[in-house]
Nucleic acid binder design. Structure first.
Lengths: 118, 118
DNA sequence: TTTTATGCATAAATAAATTATGTATATTTG
DNA sequence: CAAATATACATAATTTATTTATGCATAAAA
């Protein structure tokens, strides 16, 4: 039987995935899909697991929207698709991060403990 | 022509709505649906708009899950359905808030500006 | 009297995940 | 050496949670 000690029960709040992808690509110039999943896993200490079923469609969509450029490379006889931000993708990244920041501030305000003295 | 100055473009990140509902009910003992939408609108200065199409199904679901009790009241000849947290709902509220807090911390860590000196 | 506000509800459409597969190669392990 | 695990992509089916679009009804405001 398999005991999972560092359970990542935290499902993604829908809408944040592509922002994470963009942000990572904003830092690292070019990355391939599998690399992104691993990076997120390491950075969040297993807290956030990016499933491939979510990741790859998200990458394809971002590419179709013109935010990513792709470059196929063969390494060790295995395929890699490297993605990098386009000019547009760069702007989009800033916008989405700002949106998410703003949203999180709002949420923080809503769910922060309230003093109930009245 | 209608010019919207304080545009709330911020769509809800899916998964956070019911947490907001629970949190508000954790503060205010009992509230009815419409009241919740207005409260959120005021608290967030129009930043977050809870659509009724999302709110009412969410309330019904929380009730079905045993987290809310309902009490129907007629005020000014109009119906109100007051919701309040059950015992279970109280626990669930704490859990969901903790989850969301945790998720937001993780996200903050991921999207915070990085110093790229290496 | 028409619009806006109050108050509920639900159906259809959309979006974005999860889950479950599938293919293929490389590496590690027993 | 065989089997399991890691690497690396992909897609289809399903699930979930929204938005959008309605609908009904009463009260108040314009």
């Amino acid at each position: 039987m398999y005991i999972c000690l560092t359970m990542s029960n935290s499902k993604l709040y829908k809408g944040s995935l592509s922002t994470i992808i963009l942000k990572l690509l904003g830092e690292t110039d070019r990355m391939y899909g599998y690399e992104i999943t691993q990076k997120v896993k390491v950075l969040t200490k297993g807290e956030l697991i990016m499933t491939e079923g979510a990741l790859y469609p998200a990458l394809h969509k971002l590419e179709a929207e013109g935010f990513l450029d792709v470059e196929v490379v063969k390494v060790d006889n295995r395929m890699r698709k490297y993605y990098r931000l386009t000019e547009e993708g760069n702007k989009e990244t800033s916008n989405r991060i700002a949106d998410l920041q703003n949203y999180m501030e709002t949420m923080q305000f809503l769910i922060k403990p309230k003093l109930t003295l009245e």
